[in-house]
Amino acid sequence: MQQLSDLVFVSSNTHKYQEAKKILSSFGLEIQFLKLELEEIQSNSLKKIALKKAKNAFLKCQKPVIVEDDGLFIDSLGGFPGPYSSYVFKTIGNDGILNLLTRNRKAKFVSVIAYCDNTIQKSFEAKLDGKISTVQKGKGWGYDPIFLLENVKKTFAEYDKKNNISHRFKALKKFSNWYLRM
């Protein structure tokens, strides 16, 4: 059986790590952090991207790893930016997304947690439905200031219990349930 502290969260995004650390600690898991820029394949599949990144991360650190890939999928834009969310955020940001939308603002966040060690490669996916606000609200990172929760009049950036309901929480919960039983 593996030591729980041997698990490494690999990302170039410290915000993701901080959220993952808080969420996983609520399930009794401790993680280490390795800040690495991982090659990201071009794919329409978050799962394929995350699994490839996990495999590359494992090869670099030779410890059990998890990586997270996520995306914002906007219905009226045919699921765009989806797996290209990070690039789109860096290039046009939240203002650019807001300028692209007119009526249908329905959207979802999708998170894929990918695990890799020397024998196992597995992924865990979760989503959270919502919509895109008309203006940015609150202080948060990424798309949080424009993502409105379904049936709540607050953006992720304004919602103090984000880590209890997010797409990342749901995917990490699935991972934790599996990991603690393996």
Rank of each mutant, 00 (worst) to 15 (best):
I23A: 03
V110K: 15
K162R: 07
V152L: 04
P145S: 14
S76G: 02
D160K: 00
K16M: 04
S25E: 15
S111W: 05
G28W: 11
R105K: 11
D95A: 04
M1A: 01
N163R: 04
A157Y: 01
G96H: 11
A114V: 03
N177F: 05
P81M: 10
I49G: 00
F169N: 01
D75G: 14
E40D: 02
S11A: 01
G79K: 08
D75R: 15
I66S: 07
K154H: 06
I132P: 09
D160I: 01
K52E: 13
N94W: 11
K47S: 06
Y115P: 12
E39C: 08
N94E: 05
E158G: 07
Y84D: 14
I165S: 00
F80K: 08
I41S: 04
S43Q: 06
A54L: 10
A54Y: 14
E68V: 06
I146H: 01
G138R: 10
E30F: 03
K63P: 13
I23T: 11
D144S: 08
Y179W: 12
I49V: 04
K137R: 15
R181W: 10
S5R: 09
S11G: 13
A50V: 01
K162S: 00
E158D: 07
G93K: 08
E39Y: 13
Y179F: 08
Q32A: 11
L180I: 02
V88K: 11
G142P: 06
F175A: 07
T155K: 04
T155A: 02
Q3Y: 04
S111P: 13
F109A: 02
F147Y: 06
Y143D: 12
V135G: 10
G79R: 03
F169R: 01
L101A: 12
C61P: 07
F73P: 07
F169W: 02
K63S: 11
C116S: 10
T134E: 14
K127H: 02
I49K: 06
N151Q: 08
K139Q: 08
L172Y: 10
E68Q: 13
K53A: 01
G142Y: 03
L101Q: 10
S176W: 09
L36Q: 09
E125F: 00
M1S: 09
K106S: 14
Y159K: 01
K161V: 05
N56R: 09
R181L: 11
V8Y: 13
R103V: 15
K153E: 15
E125A: 04
F27N: 05
K154Y: 01
N56L: 07
N94Y: 12
L148N: 14
T155W: 02
S85H: 12
R105G: 03
E40M: 00
L51H: 00
Q42D: 03
I97D: 09
R103N: 12
K16P: 06
N104T: 08
I132C: 05
W141C: 02
H167V: 10
L46M: 07
F80T: 01
K90G: 01
N99I: 02
K162Q: 02
K22A: 15
G138C: 13
K52Y: 00
V110L: 09
G71F: 03
P81H: 11
H167I: 06
E40Q: 06
